[in-house]
Design a protein around this nucleic acid. Structure first.
Lengths: 134, 134
DNA sequence: CCCATATACTTACTTAGGTAAGTAATTTTA
DNA sequence: TAAAATTACTTACCTAAGTAAGTATATGGG
């Protein structure tokens, strides 16, 4: 029983990443890159630590993705007041593109969730949040 | 709103993989390898296609994981009647280990789900199944 | 003040998963 | 029945994410 549950979570996680990646192709982006761009759009300038804490991933994962985003001019990094920190920001061109991309991603998500009512979506998120709270 | 939902699925998926990997360390196994061993325990001899279809992953993913499992003597492969196919089976030593591992994994899963009632677990799986059915 | 410790980030290496293209065996079709 | 198409698997290469260990800066205690 429980096995089916994790099987299902795992599969839907992969499915949503796949569809998001597909939609992001036209922007030459990947889902994890988008996660960071969205994060920066929401919160403005952030340290790398703030990013990986918010996304709940390890620091090296963020380092790697930021390197790619920097290389393709989606983000800009500068030294922090604390010289160990690096402050990350959307580039000017990213600022104009992000709203368009956001709209496209929203469509994908709505498609994936079209079989669930608003109430069911709320319910699902509440149940998911309960996982791992021991 | 919807973003939080996928954010949550993604995170819980990673969390469960992480905890399962941690439990599997003592057996020198990884979660995806376990998925295949469990599959073979349930269904007996399978072709690689049957495995990737059941797990809903791509063929190369299974090829790679099976190579590792074969190398560490968890599985055995032989040519099928159709010579393009390869029939996969648990090794003799795997057959004796798998029940022990299964028990350990069950504990992990129960821990992760300990905040949810049986009814909530059922509900969650039903809602997850609805994702992507357009 | 200086040394030990902690913090922020990076590097190197591992598995997981995807796509695209290749190979060999089988099946379909003309 | 020979050529074309399909199928099963593999190889090569990409991103994602984790752990362990390294580097450089900051901080706190003696």
């Amino acid at each position: 029983m429980q096995k089916l549950l994790f099987h299902e979570i795992h599969q839907k996680s992969r499915l949503s990443v796949k569809e998001v990646n597909d939609a992001l192709k036209e922007f030459h982006l990947y889902s994890s890159q988008w996660s960071i761009l969205f994060c920066l759009k929401q919160f403005g300038e952030m340290t790398q630590k703030e990013i990986w804490q918010y996304l709940n991933v390890e620091a090296p994962t963020v380092t790697r993705t930021l390197m790619r985003l920097e290389h393709s001019d989606w983000i800009v990094r500068k030294e922090g007041e604390d010289k160990r920190e690096r402050l990350v920001q959307l580039s000017e061109s990213a600022k104009t593109m992000v709203p368009q991309i956001e709209k496209r991603i929203q469509e994908v998500e709505e498609g994936l969730l079209s079989s669930l009512s608003e109430a069911e979506q709320e319910q699902l998120i509440e149940l998911l949040k309960k996982i791992g709270n021991h």
